Amino acid sequence: MKAGKKIVYAALFANLAIAAIKFAASLWTGSSAMLSEAIHSSVDTGNQGLLLYGRRRASRPADDGHPFGYGMELFFWGFVVALLIFSFGGALSIYEGILKLSDPEPIADPWLNFAILGAAALFEGYSFRLAWREIRRAYPDRSTYSAVKASKDPSIFVILMEDAAALTGLAIAASGLALAFWLDEPAFDGVASIAIGLLLLATAVLLARETRSLLTGESASRRVIERVRKLLRDDRRVEAAPEVLSMQIGADAILLAATLEFHEGVSAQDVERAQRELTEEIESSCPEIRRAFLRPAAV
């Protein structure tokens, strides 16, 4: 969780600086694509603030109202971030692009825009690198896309996808500005703004799908479930574990329940001892499993 917090702070400060520079440049040059990029960076800055808020609320200890803790709050705020990217980032960028197409105006000082886009790419690239390294560290044997789908921490995969969209958006904005300048056709600037908006809409849909899955009771990773199944199978008292159920209740918190079939001849006293010992072993060998509930199968 500490690595995720560092990544969010790095992205927040980078986007805050970038947004201010982009807004100044868009006002000076009149570039629609640059204004779309400024809106994009502003939305990203607000999103990182929401992720930090979600992390703080998710870290609260369990109480009577929430006996399994507040970890799922981070999933909720990750979903809110996806909605903000869709509505404010994507929709406003498309709207701004349409306005530019309806009344195209020449872009002043295009080289200033190119310089700012280059500086923004450095900031965004640094933030992206931090998030990419963390997700590769957590899932070294998976592709980046597969790792994003497997990740249970929105504060990491949201930043990674936001930064990937931001770097792509910068390339689109630079292409639109270049065409508008060299072909003396300002409409390309509006087209770039619309393309950036569509990119943000697609990113928002992907993020919403991932966070929705976590919000609606996504199971623990296959790696964790297989580790638990092996631990249960290796116990000499257990014949089978026909049912192993799990739910992600936080970025690094899992609720687990399993049904066990014991060998014939295992006494009721031994069954109770096995349940207790196996519960302790599961929770110690898999620290992310905060609560494990084992029950014997009905005879």
Rank of each mutant, 00 (worst) to 15 (best):
I85Q: 02
L99F: 09
Y145E: 14
A3P: 01
A165R: 01
A241Y: 06
V238P: 04
P296I: 10
E185V: 05
R295W: 05
L177Y: 00
D109H: 15
L207F: 01
V228G: 10
S102M: 13
H40F: 07
E264T: 09
A19T: 04
R276H: 14
S221P: 06
S41N: 08
R229G: 06
A10L: 11
A147F: 03
A297E: 13
R236S: 15
L201C: 13
K149A: 15
P110H: 10
L215M: 15
S193P: 04
L51Y: 05
Y9H: 11
D63M: 00
Q48C: 09
K5S: 14
S151E: 07
I196H: 07
F293D: 12
Y145K: 12
A119M: 14
A10D: 09
A150G: 04
H40G: 02
A11I: 08
Y9Q: 12
R237V: 00
D109E: 14
R237G: 03
K22W: 02
G169V: 05
I282T: 07
I135L: 11
V158A: 13
L232D: 00
S42D: 00
A173T: 10
S42T: 14
S93H: 02
N113F: 08
R276Y: 11
F128A: 14
S151R: 05
G97Q: 02
S127T: 09
R290I: 14
A257F: 01
L74N: 12
